[in-house]
Amino acid sequence: MKKRNVIAGLLLTFMFSAILASAVELPKNEKITYKMPHKVKAVFENKCFGCHNNESRSDKAKDKLNFDKLSDLTKVEKLGTFNHVKKVLDEGKMPPKKFLERYPEKGLTAGESKLLNDWVQKESKSLLKD
């Protein structure tokens, strides 16, 4: 009886810690903390985050757009940044051609580009309103 209790207890503790661990780990897997739909975030993380983050070796890239700092920007700065992203997407300027020569799989499909562009515009509109 006692043994069974111990086993049950161990099992419970194990399950609990597993749940806890997964809950703690969840945000760790997400590179971008700015709130956005999962689909949008997945594209940004796969295709853009690599150069546009705090640790990026390209100062130019993180100067123009840094996902790690996005939430800290003022409303004006956010709107300015999103306007940039929109223009860059419209013109198909990102990811850079030279980069794509080496990593062709990082290119944005037309669908992905539209997904990002639509979100950026929607987000800008709601920023303007609140």
């Binding site: 700065e77 306007n83 800008s124």
Partner: peptide, 11 residues
């Protein structure tokens, strides 16, 4: 539009 204006001012 207002977004392009704010973008330009940011630039």
């Amino acid at each position: 539009d207002v977004f392009d204006k704010i973008g330009d001012l940011d630039d």
